[in-house]
Amino acid sequence: MKVAIAGGAGYTGGELLRLLVHHPEIQITQVLSNSQAGKPVTDIHPDLLGSLDIEFSPELTENFDCIFLCMGHGRSGKFLQEINISSDKIVIDLSNEFRFEDGKHSFTYGLPEWQKDKIANSTNIANPGCFATTIQLGLLPLASSNLIRSDIHVTAITGSTGAGQSLSPTSHFSWRNNNVSIYKLFTHQHIPEIQQSAKALQNTFDKEIYMVPVRGNFSRGILASIYLDNNHLDKKDVNDLYSEYYSNHPFVKVTSNNLDVKQVVNTNFCFLKIELIKDKIHITSILDNLIKGASGQAVQNLNIIAGWPEETGLLLKASAF
């Protein structure tokens, strides 16, 4: 399959290139970037030296079957209006522009563990947000069994790459290093995504999600601590519920071991640990914000649409140290 990437100079575009350059079913035909047009891709992504010999293009040609949009929030809709891509092409958008299924567009929300069958029959995919993916994967089994009966409390810490490549005061090394801070308290833009899937799976869901996002002093990865009321579930009930729900989803693993972010960095996995403490269910969820939280999940969605094994090009191992 011939693939183009629009916005290939940023973090998510770079991660897509690193995944797709070794994907056995993919040929990268174009990497678009207005700011870097004419330059070799390896000038911006030097780790691809020897793996990819291509220059950034200023304009899209018809030489593609699928295009990934990595251009930042608010730019995808304008791009699609200007280019007028034919309906037989696959479009996978990594921004937040089409994530809400409101009847105003033809995009499917691309969380495979929620609606794999719908993704398989779609050509326009809205890739989920990184925090939203982390938290939803912790909650989907409960929502699917109508077991969310209380408000949900989340504290989630993310690496600096979650803020994108453009420099800002809170992503600058001298500020971020040896430092931790809270931002967008209870108002993070990914909360409505989580509410959307919870409501779709559990139509009685009407609770609040109180999210405390935290800037971490590391580059990549997310750890979410989630808790809510327990409705008379015992340990076996919870283990059976989560094991059954994720039995056909290869990238979510439930474990009783303690979790740390390095277990999933540089992989497309999400690891979950479920604990019952007093009258609460506590869920720890970890993933790599640039892979399972962005580019890896985008490739996973393409694999599903194309009918390839879901793990194709995504069997990556974390670095332990």
Rank of each mutant, 00 (worst) to 15 (best):
G293I: 05
M1R: 02
S86T: 13
A298E: 11
D237T: 02
I194T: 04
N124T: 09
M1N: 06
G216P: 06
K235A: 03
I90K: 11
S243K: 09
L316T: 07
I222Q: 13
I283H: 03
K317I: 12
Y246R: 04
N217T: 06
Y246K: 03
L201V: 08
E97D: 14
H45K: 00
G293E: 01
I135G: 14
G159T: 14
I286G: 04
S295G: 12
K184G: 08
H23M: 02
I148C: 06
Q297A: 11
R220Q: 10
D88S: 08
E82T: 11
S57L: 11
N258V: 02
D151H: 14
C70R: 01
I274D: 04
D53G: 05
N257W: 02
V265L: 01
R220M: 05
Y210W: 09
L140H: 10
W114V: 15
F131V: 00
N217L: 00
Y246I: 05
N34Q: 10
L17E: 00
K273V: 01
R18F: 01
Y246L: 04
A306N: 10
T134R: 09
K273G: 03
D117Q: 13
G74W: 14
N217V: 03
L241N: 07
L142A: 09
I209P: 09
N121E: 03
S219W: 07
R18H: 00
R149Y: 12
Q165D: 05
A156M: 05
Q202C: 14
K104F: 11
Q165M: 05
D43H: 15
H232D: 07
G216E: 00
N63T: 11
R149G: 07
I194W: 08
G7V: 05
E97N: 10
P112D: 02
Q115N: 12
N146A: 07
S219V: 08
H23Y: 05
Q297D: 11
D117V: 06
A9Q: 03
I85F: 13
S243H: 10
S51V: 03
K262C: 04
L139S: 10
N231I: 14
T133A: 09
T204H: 13
I194V: 15
D65C: 09
F271Q: 06
P112V: 07
G164E: 00
L17V: 05
I54D: 04
D260R: 08
V238E: 00
D65E: 13
S144T: 14
E193L: 08
A9I: 01
D237F: 10
P46W: 13
S95W: 07
I85S: 04
D234H: 11
D206P: 06
I83P: 01
N179R: 11
V214I: 15
H190I: 04
I152K: 02
Y242R: 00
I5Q: 04
F205G: 01
I157K: 08
G296F: 11
V41R: 01
N301M: 07
D151S: 09
D279Y: 14
S51W: 08
G159F: 14
H105Y: 06
K262N: 11
C270I: 14
S319C: 09
T12F: 06
K104H: 12
F271H: 12
Q195T: 15
E15I: 01
E310F: 07
H73V: 13
Q27T: 12
L315E: 12
N63D: 14
T12Q: 08
T108Y: 01
L147Y: 00
P58A: 04
Q297C: 11
I44N: 00
L290G: 03
